[in-house]
Amino acid sequence: MTQPLLLPESFTLLIGPPRSGTTLIANTFMSHSSVCGVHEPYQRGRNDAYEATDIAAFQNDHDLDFTKTPNLAMKETTTRLQNVELSLDLAKSAQSSGIYTGLILILRCPFEAFLSQVEASRAHWGEKKLTEITEESVAQFFSRQRTTLRLICENARRFHVRILSYDSFCAAPNTETARLMALIPVAMEPHQKDLMPDETIVGVADPKFASTRGGIKKTDRALGVTELMATYRHLPSVKFAIAMRSLIALDPKKMTDIEKLDALTALAL
């Protein structure tokens, strides 16, 4: 007789737009000794049409053992709408299996994310999709963000939610990490302050993993952001991005995560 699978005690989905600090924050979260992490299963598995959303099948596919790491975390970006749909379905499957399920939505100024994406595409990835700043590429980038965020907002209230801005994390990584860990809840471990995960979690070399141990190097893109907003503000999707930028910048001590989610939902709808 086969033993039934040991399910995790919690499942946390960390999700956000590309170039929003999702990898850095997920790595920090997943470096906790009780957390077992999976990075971008749907994005990485897209060429093989990987679409498993049943939590037991997912566990089996990734050979996950929760005996020593009872908290499962998964990170995905909103690069493709399908990735978001699959991630949310997996979270729903976890929840309906009786697993405590959290969602951490990671946000960053969308214009900074866009510029970062262009720079990374040009410099590192050899991707030709987003190497030029044109009206078309700007409109497409922000339209896609809006569509995927709408889907997340529509589903977020099913789960225990935290919203984290990349800038807040960079400003106070220790207390923000502790706040995220308290969602599961576990106490933050000292090594998480290093902001550098175990190499086995990081996997292949990629410029987006190049955070410096113990600190975060931020590129100042203020001028580029101002220019981008001024040039393309006539585009409806850029108007959305400008409003979203203001929302993300609001002090979390003035607006709760749920209030922020409400505002974001109204914006995305």
Binding site: A172, N174, T175, R179, P185, K253, T256
Partner: peptide
């Protein structure tokens, strides 16, 4: 946690004390 989410947070001045949320 299945019945109440206390939205715990940490202040820079009190990094080891989990405070009841929302943040203030």
């Amino acid at each position: 946690r299945n019945a109440f989410d206390y939205d715990l947070w940490f202040d820079v001045a009190l990094p080891t004390l989990a405070l009841r949320g929302p943040q203030c």
